[in-house]
Simulated assay, not measured.
Amino acid sequence: MISVLLGLASAVGYGAADFLGGIAARRIIAMLVTAVAALAGVAALTLAAPIDGGVWHLETTLVGFATGVTSCLGIWLLYSAYARGPMTTLAPVVAIVSTVVPMSAGLLSGETFSPLGWTALVIGLVAIALVSRPGAGERTRAHRVDVIKAAVAGAFLGVLYIHLDSAPLDAGLTPLTANRISCAVLAFAIAGVLAWRSRGVHPVDVGGGGGAADAVGGVVRDAGGGGVMTVTATRVDTRRSVVIAAAVAIACASGLLDASANTLFLVGLSFGDLSVLSVVSGFYPAVTILLALLFLGERPSRLQTMGIVLALAAMLGMSMA
């Protein structure tokens, strides 16, 4: 029972972290959100280290640093897709692909695949096709490029799951900590380069069909809408500071939730089986979808809703395979 509760808590953490990361990426560039979230995760994992008691292994740490590169790209693509695409239709794509990748790695290493697993895989592919269909309104329309971003993001995140699964049992959270450190360093470096290349960009026209310029000072994605309004440089700087501060706070919350979810998952392993935890925590896309429905007003079409349900069913099947 305790393992189920911990798995459920981790699912809530994962789903909420993805949602908040997407919200932050609608205000500042996705790479900066990735950097801040990763750094917040490092802080949380460092605080949890004495409780975790994980042992640092040289090979595992080096691989953790290497997977930090793929995680950085995966999280960036995820937030970039969420920044303009509907989370209700993109979250299932990320979840299914991130599950299929480690499953495929297991097959290549000689593991067997049950009929349930193959059935779930087919259902998952059908689900992706359904959720990727154009929605009835702008809030449910997933552009092809965003679906591709979500799929590639899932593939990159699946690489991290392979690494965590292969790490020694006594490593604890150390592989994830190394991963987040590498991700934070790379993401901050890239975000810094982007900000430097965009230095001196201070648009004064806000609005025009749903938002301001795509970048203000290299980091702000959207400063609001509602018509064209000429503002002074001081007001632009003030608005920019408020937008950045709010987005950074949201990104920090995303990183803390993600790290907390991973910690809860690890603790859950000491109370129950991995299979049970995988099934329960695997429903994290449902949390992202629910939050998008409640707070963003996204309303998927009937076919998309069917695809979302099939995606959750596929996740359950693949977790039990």
Results as ranks from 00 to 15, higher is better:
Arg180Ala: 04
Leu78Gln: 10
Ile28Ser: 02
Ala44Ser: 00
Phe113Thr: 08
Trp196Phe: 04
Pro50Tyr: 09
Thr119Asp: 03
Val55Tyr: 06
Leu176Ile: 05
Met318Val: 14
Thr34Ile: 06
Glu111Pro: 02
Ala178Met: 04
Val101Arg: 04
Ala37Cys: 14
Thr140Phe: 03
Leu107Lys: 08
Leu121Pro: 01
Ser98Ile: 04
Gly117Phe: 13
Met320Lys: 09
Thr238Val: 14
Val309Ile: 15
Ala48Glu: 02
Arg133Glu: 10
Ala151Val: 03
Gly158Leu: 00
Leu73Asp: 04
Leu45Tyr: 01
Ala261Lys: 08
Gly317Met: 08
Met320Asn: 12
Ala251Val: 11
Ile250Trp: 09
Ala184Glu: 03
Gly7Val: 04
Ala25Ile: 02
Ala245Thr: 15
Leu266Thr: 11
Ala249Phe: 10
Asp18Ile: 06
Leu316Gln: 13
Ala247Ser: 06
Ala37Thr: 14
Ala30Ser: 15
Arg299Trp: 07
Val145Thr: 13
Ser104Trp: 11
Leu294Tyr: 11
Val243Thr: 05
Ala9Pro: 01
Pro134Tyr: 05
Ile96Cys: 02
Ala253Glu: 11
Ala49Ser: 14
Ala11Phe: 07
Thr112Asp: 06
Gly192Ala: 07
Trp76Ala: 11
Val309Pro: 04
Thr177Ile: 09
Gly15Tyr: 00
Leu121Gly: 12
Ala215Arg: 14
Arg302Thr: 15
Gly158Asn: 00
Gly210Met: 05
Leu58Ile: 15
Pro285Ser: 07
Val206Glu: 12
Leu186Trp: 13
Leu169Pro: 00
Leu312Pro: 11
Cys183Asn: 13
Gly117Arg: 09
Ile289His: 07
Pro115Gln: 11
Ala261Glu: 04
Leu264Tyr: 00
Gly41Trp: 04
Trp76Arg: 02
Val267Met: 09
Met318Gly: 01
Ala25Val: 10
Phe113Tyr: 10
Phe283Ile: 12
Phe271Ile: 02
Thr67Leu: 11
Leu157Pro: 00
Leu266Asp: 04
Asn262Thr: 02
Ala261Asn: 10
Arg221Ala: 14
Gly7His: 10
Val94Ala: 09
Gln304Glu: 08
Leu173Ile: 15
Gly226Gln: 13
Leu316Asp: 06
Ala30Thr: 09
Met31Ile: 15
Pro134Ile: 05
Ala120Asn: 07
Phe156Tyr: 01
Met103Asp: 09
Ala246Thr: 13
Asp237Gln: 10
Val243Pro: 00
Thr263Ser: 12
Leu186Gly: 10
Val122Met: 08
Thr89Asp: 07
Arg139Cys: 01
Gly217Asp: 12
Asp165Pro: 03
